[in-house]
């Protein structure tokens, strides 16, 4: 039987979260937000991230604090997921904004892209040549 996700003791609360749902980055981001409310210790126990929360104020409701932490986990997990999916769009917008300020950069970027493509094609051709030579040797050996 798995351990309870939130366990409140006399002095601290223990939260267990699934690392397949919440990344380390998310947990640290939420921890950072909670630095003025709680003392935070992080650990890993088998399949769970474990978050220990000590209250900074004496009369803090630890269950309430834990639930707020959980809500922020959802908030930041959503934020990071959205950021990742929007990354390409943001990059394109930034490039457009940058290039409009300095048009010569467009030409430089295009030349660089062409150079990279040519290099990639050359590497592919070399790879094919090597494979052909490799097949020819094994064919000759069979014939011989």
């Amino acid at each position: 039987m798995s351990k309870p996700k939130i366990n409140v003791n006399e002095n601290y609360a223990e939260l267990r979260v699934n690392p397949e749902i919440y990344s380390k980055e998310t947990i640290f981001a939420v921890g950072y937000v909670f630095l003025d409310k709680a003392y935070i210790l992080l650990d890993i126990d088998k399949d769970d991230f474990v978050i220990y929360l000590y209250p900074q104020q004496k009369n803090t409701d630890l269950m309430q604090l834990s639930l707020e932490f959980c809500n922020e986990l959802v908030n930041y997990a959503h934020y990071f997921t959205r950021s990742e999916s929007n990354a390409e769009a943001i990059k394109a917008i930034m490039q457009r904004a940058l290039f409009s300020a300095a048009p010569s950069l467009v030409q430089e970027a295009e030349e660089k892209e062409i150079e990279d493509l040519i290099k990639e094609l050359e590497e592919e051709e070399e790879e094919e040549e090597r494979e052909k030579d490799g097949n020819a040797v094994s064919f000759d050996k069979k014939e011989g």
Binding site: Y12, E14, L41, L42, D43, F49, V50, Y52
Partner: peptide, 19 residues
């Protein structure tokens, strides 16, 4: 909690290298 233990005049703290 597990990663933190109290001795007489000190504490022992273990921190996961993965985190």
């Amino acid at each position: 909690p597990f990663p933190l233990t109290k001795k007489k005049d000190s504490f022992t703290l273990k921190l996961s290298k993965e985190l």
